[in-house]
Write a protein that binds this DNA or RNA. Structure first.
Lengths: 163, 163
DNA sequence: TTAAACCCTAAACCATAGTTCATAGCAATA
DNA sequence: TATTGCTATGAACTATGGTTTAGGGTTTAA
């Protein structure tokens, strides 16, 4: 009835390497975990709740140090509710910011993918390359493309003859 | 008319430390940047386009190595369009996955915030603590809370007397 | 009771993404 | 032409988040 869990069971449950759990413990993230007389970690069911919270914060990129701070607040009982709330609200803002950054940049990536997928992707890219090469030439800067102008046109002609 | 830009101007434009730009160059992310006879990096306007792409990939957590791979593909011209598209599609999947993870976990965080914000947050947390303490006691494991049972009840009474 | 499977710690090691420092060369301006 | 402010490199250093290894104890099941 009164079941406890080994580090391996916890690792399996949370799909984490055992070494990571030991590392978290060393960093002070698991002050709630008991040890038996031989020094083995003994996890109880309620520890899973704490660890789930740790994973949640980790999944949203909270640094280990801040997670420790949060867990330490939790261990101090009801008197820290306000501080915990403040921490989570700040963290929520960080996550929202990250979401906006991902959203914006994902849109750019999709734009590129569409360009690469379009029927005239080759013509589009050729024009881009031409533009860069023209500019670099005017400024007397080296042509950054592996195939220089000549080779590029040669590829161009080859492509035509292949059609 | 034919304007070029110093590393400082680029750094300012992209809001990046100069050291980071040098670091990216060392890692091979900036093969398109020229140097003058004194070894100074000379950026052209079209370089800004490449760097914007680098920032876009960095903002979505693509590793430096992979960004280098992508940029190298770009420098090889139209023959690599398919590979580039594949890379970006894979990356897009990664970003979508990250978005889902953030979404899920943000929801959990908001749930916690709401709990901490509710009128009976103190009662809720007290019950949580009680549950953990009961379980730990039954399993003969140490009480992980800083204030033990007695101290907790004392706090409890104190709280009541304060009302 | 013994082998296989587990668990422990400490310390070294690794990858990633930069930053800082020492030293020195170039550029613009007064 | 001298000072100030840029620029360069290489090497060392930092921080983060782990993983690996060495050496050794514990548990379990046949």
């Amino acid at each position: 009835m009164k079941k406890t869990y080994s580090i391996k069971e916890v690792a399996t449950y949370f799909n984490l390497p055992i070494s990571t759990i030991r590392y978290y413990d060393k960093k002070g993230l698991l002050p709630f975990v008991s040890k038996n007389t031989s020094g083995y970690r003994i996890f109880s069911k309620s520890d899973f709740g704490f660890i789930k919270t740790i994973c949640c914060l980790k999944n949203t990129d909270m640094p280990i140090k801040d997670i420790k701070t949060y867990i330490d607040l939790c261990m101090r009982g009801i008197s820290t509710i306000d501080q915990r709330k403040k921490m989570l609200n700040q963290h929520k803002e960080n996550v929202l910011k990250k979401q906006r950054i991902l959203e914006r940049n994902l849109f750019e990536i999709e734009t590129k993918i569409n360009r690469y997928s379009s029927d005239d992707s080759v013509e589009i890219i050729k024009k881009q390359i031409d533009f860069v090469q023209d500019e670099k030439e005017q400024l007397h800067l080296k042509n950054p493309f592996i195939l220089g102008r000549k080779a590029f046109f040669w590829t161009n002609n080859l492509k035509r003859s292949l059609i």
